[in-house]
Design a protein around this nucleic acid. Sequence first.
DNA 1: TATTGTTATACTCTATAACTATA
DNA 2: TATAGTTATAGAGTATAACAATA
Lengths: 155, 155
Amino acid sequence: MTEIGLDVLEDTLSFYIRSLNMAVSRDLDQSLEGLDVARGTGKITTLLLVDRHPGIRPSVIAQMILKDRSAMGRLLEQMEEHGLLTREVSSDDNRAQALYITGKGRELADLIRPIITRQSRNFFSDITDEEHAMLIRVLGRTYRRVVGLEPNDEV
Amino acid sequence: MTEIGLDVLEDTLSFYIRSLNMAVSRDLDQSLEGLDVARGTGKITTLLLVDRHPGIRPSVIAQMILKDRSAMGRLLEQMEEHGLLTREVSSDDNRAQALYITGKGRELADLIRPIITRQSRNFFSDITDEEHAMLIRVLGRTYRRVVGLEPNDEV
DNA sequence: TATTGTTATACTCTATAACTATA
DNA sequence: TATAGTTATAGAGTATAACAATA
């Protein structure tokens, strides 16, 4: 078993990203079991963004979670049904919506913040603090480029 | 747009892994468009493992691509239909199968190796070579722990 | 003409459990 | 009793295209 070589994948970053994605997502789903943000990608980010940025537009969130508008709409519909947020027509632009957190949504956000942080650090428990900081810095840079955010200063 | 903070996700490694997984997988699918290994996770790894390790068992591959036996079986069925590999009864254990690559499978493996390597490096183009090596080393360590492989020596 | 969001659909993946055959 | 693989199914996510309303 030890000597099963992974061929070119051994040195392919996308392989590790894709494999660890499955593992960490499964583990995260267990940590969030029974909560309205478990399963799939985007609900957690959406909840936290709406909480931090009242009136934010769906299309802005869609860009940051790498979904198209149709997937974003279904996500919001589900979260609205669960009473986590409300959708209003934007006062700036009648085509657009403004999203607002509900009391229930805020409670859930407050509940999951420590869970999310702890789960990620525990999952990558064999990584040192220096390595962890470096991973965040490097992968964060790629993430911001991919979604079209301005580069950070990377102190 | 610049000032949209990501709340606790900003420092959460799982967030970057999960987000970049979507982006890099989509990009990879484009690079492999029309080929039998595009879409989904596991087909590429399976093809390369069967090519490198003739007679390998499905359950060994399943462990390395983080799938259960049922998902593995469907993957193999599809790949066998496409003429990429064959399944035989293992001579060691009549319950188990031994997988072998076909000529067509080998051709495809040879075709995709450079594509996979190049796609990953191009996607993470804003990462330096040192950073890239470090990411492989650190994430590879976590990957091996997760799938239950022996730790590398990490020269 | 471009943008915001909606609807519909086909495809695929995921998780689970029950099942057969062999060890 | 445990293991290797199969089958069936319900639920969820993904990709695509066509659509209405507004800018």
